[in-house]
């Protein structure tokens, strides 16, 4: 099963998230992650949803999504080169004395320590999913007390190959 990242432009109306999420369940798809927020146009929100399925299944899902009255467009971002970013906050078990050591780990990831307490500290990291997964592996030995991730926000790159339309 391939991973796909789909952007769904929707009316910013009460209940729209429920309609979209219900459709995934109704058609037998799992939502791996979802982000919702404003878009370039007032009154519209953009959802970026990660899910799995083969090409035929994803095509069917996109067509069904497009049938929702509140859906304006559906784009399979992963059909073309695209930029994807996720934010994670990671609370690690560590004392202030370990700050320097941890800074050495987070700096190559362009992550930052954003809060320090007597027994724990919080690391903020942005990047694609793989980068955050890699940092998490390094931090496991300290003990990850708490983790919160946003899911991906993503968009197609400015230059994409010709004949690569992925919108229904």
């Amino acid at each position: 099963m391939q991973r796909h990242t789909i952007a769904v432009l929707v009316n910013d109306q009460p209940g729209v998230l429920t309609r979209v999420a219900t459709l995934f369940g109704q058609r037998g798809f799992n939502i791996d992650s979802i982000t919702v927020g404003g878009s370039e146009e007032a009154g519209l929100s953009r959802m970026v949803i990660s899910t799995g399925g083969d090409d035929q299944q994803i095509n069917q899902l996109m067509k069904q999504l497009y049938k929702l009255i509140d859906v304006i467009s559906v784009t399979n971002l992963s059909a073309n080169p695209f930029v994807s970013r996720e934010l994670a906050l990671i609370k690690v078990s560590a004392s202030p004395s370990q700050l320097a050591e941890l800074n050495g780990i987070v700096e190559p990831f362009r992550a930052a320590i954003v809060d320090v307490g007597p027994e724990s500290l919080i690391i903020q990291v942005t990047g694609d999913t793989e980068k955050i997964d890699a940092l998490l592996i390094l931090l496991q030995s300290y003990g990850v007390l708490e983790l919160t991730r946003t899911g991906s926000v993503a968009m197609t790159r400015s230059i994409v190959p010709a004949d690569a339309a992925a919108t229904v």
Partner: peptide
Amino acid sequence: ITGITIPITKHSYF
């Protein structure tokens, strides 16, 4: 009822 009928309506309004 709008929530209950989301999967079985073409559209719904509250």
